[in-house]
């Protein structure tokens, strides 16, 4: 295990070394490990893989619900989506890795809160494309540095997105225009990400790029709303969570946004 992972979370590095299986719970999200590798991540600050796949209509909500219903208990929802012909392997992996690194970025954010680990817990999505824990930690660090290199004003991440009206501003790129069109003065980047079905980090990065280009206002005051946290009871779930519990967890995550 490299020192890069140690810097973010010593516990993650240790769990990777011992080849642990279970879920790592921190203030801003959870990481699922299987045999020491990261197999999934979830955060209330990041749209889940279900949102990424259904928001733009790639998979109908009913198709998603059916997959969870039929394959959730045996924890093979990802496999089911491919085998039932709803997704190609490549699509599932691209979307899954997008969701995994997105949620991991928030989960591994520097925080004074506790880090807990529950052994033996597996995610209902199943194994899609595991990523080495050190790689996940390194990517989260790189993302933090990238945001600061683009526009070093973290307060913009959790504030409502306000399009700027400056004469002579450059024209926003197509994907940025989709983001701006949803900026109504109240929606934060996290809310817009969910509506677009786009990873939250990608939305943060585009907001910072647009702020640097003068297309979005940079708030002068610190953020009113800190990054969404997991409800406290999440860390206390039983050793064998059932689907109903996972559903409640998802609902709680969404309500908490």
């Amino acid at each position: 295990m490299t020192s890069a992972a140690v810097a973010v979370s010593p516990m993650l590095a240790r769990l990777a070394d011992e080849g642990a299986t279970g879920v790592l719970v921190r203030d801003h999200g959870v990481l699922y490990l299987a045999d020491g590798q990261v197999v999934h991540a979830e955060s209330p600050a990041a749209p889940g893989i279900d949102v990424l796949l259904t928001a733009g209509g790639r998979i109908a909500r009913t198709g998603w619900d059916e997959a969870v219903q039929r394959a959730g208990a045996r924890r093979e929802v990802g496999r089911f989506l491919v085998e039932s012909g709803q997704l190609a392997d490549g699509e599932l992996e691209i979307c899954h890795l997008g969701a995994l690194h997105d949620a991991a970025y928030f989960t591994l954010a520097p925080t004074g809160g506790p880090t807990r680990f529950r052994y033996g817990v597996a995610h209902w999505l199943g194994r899609v494309r595991p990523v080495a824990a050190a790689e996940v930690a390194r990517e989260a660090r790189r993302r933090r540095a990238l945001l600061d290199a683009v526009w070093p004003y973290p307060e913009i991440d959790s504030a409502p997105v306000l399009p700027a009206v400056l004469p002579g501003s450059p024209v926003a790129a197509p994907r940025q225009r989709a983001l701006l069109a949803l900026a109504d003065g109240a929606r934060t980047p996290a809310v817009i990400a969910r509506l677009l079905g786009r990873p939250a980090f990608h939305t943060l990065l585009d907001v910072r790029r647009m702020a640097a280009a003068g297309l979005v206002e940079t708030p002068s005051e610190p953020a009113a709303q800190p990054t969404a946290r997991l409800p406290g009871w999440v860390a206390a779930f039983p050793d064998d969570p059932d689907i109903a519990l996972l559903r409640r967890l998802r609902d709680a995550l969404e309500a908490n946004l």
Binding site: P174, R177, A178, L179, A181, L182, R198
Partner: peptide, 15 residues
């Protein structure tokens, strides 16, 4: 029509 309506459908084909 490009992305940007409510619900924000992304343009499917890259230019």
């Amino acid at each position: 029509p490009e992305g940007g309506q409510e619900g924000g459908q992304a343009r499917k084909s890259p230019a």
